[in-house]
């Protein structure tokens, strides 16, 4: 396969630029920068080391994210790429960017909310903004989400749990 390369200089800024186009395969509206899973970028001559952290221990998207990072970097002309997974400090939804939270809501997923550290009834509906909502299950379609239903507009929705 021929990969078209636009060679970028190895600077932290350029690498972050590339990474901001890599998205979460399960929530494609969020980039890995929005999610806060990129912890550091270390540039050593022409080698770029990218340190990422998993959201949940069993998050099945992590392997794919690492592969997508590698591909995106190669497409931009980087050849020496090292991806390191760090366990500590543990990822938290506090690292999600405000921009990311806004994009989540627009996508139809309620963003992590400090008032709902423990998922309970009342998380704001991303469709109609009512807080008359009901928790259906603390576990949703992926490890990071809980399942809700809005009593006002009757739509079901996901809530990205505080973690």
């Amino acid at each position: 396969m021929l990969v078209q390369t636009n060679k970028l200089k190895a600077t932290t800024e350029n690498v972050m630029q590339v990474l901001s186009a890599v998205t979460d395969p399960e929530i494609p509206v969020l980039s890995i920068i929005d999610l806060g899973i990129v912890r550091d970028v270390i540039i050593n001559n022409d080698e770029v080391e990218i340190i990422i952290t998993a959201t949940y221990s069993g998050c099945p998207a992590m392997d794919m994210i690492a592969m997508n990072i590698r591909l995106a970097m190669m497409e931009n002309g980087f050849s020496k790429i090292k991806i390191t997974t760090a366990l500590a400090p543990a990822w938290t939804t506090d690292w999600m960017s405000e921009d990311g939270k806004r994009k989540l809501k627009e996508y139809g997923i309620a963003a992590p909310d400090k008032n709902f550290n423990i998922a309970t009834d009342g998380v704001e509906c991303p469709q109609c903004h009512s807080t008359n909502t009901k928790l259906l299950s603390e576990f949703g379609s992926t490890a990071c989400k809980a399942l809700y239903q809005c009593n006002n507009c009757r739509e079901p929705f996901d809530y990205f749990k505080c973690h």
């Binding site: 949940y56 221990s57 069993g58 099945p60 259906l136 299950s137 576990f139 399942l147």
Partner: peptide
């Protein structure tokens, strides 16, 4: 369905921890 999803989510968490 919701509880099927819950128990398998728990399974996945445990699996991820064991992989580490």
């Amino acid at each position: 369905l919701e509880q099927d999803i819950a128990i398998t989510n728990i399974s996945l968490d445990l699996l991820g921890q064991s992989r580490n």
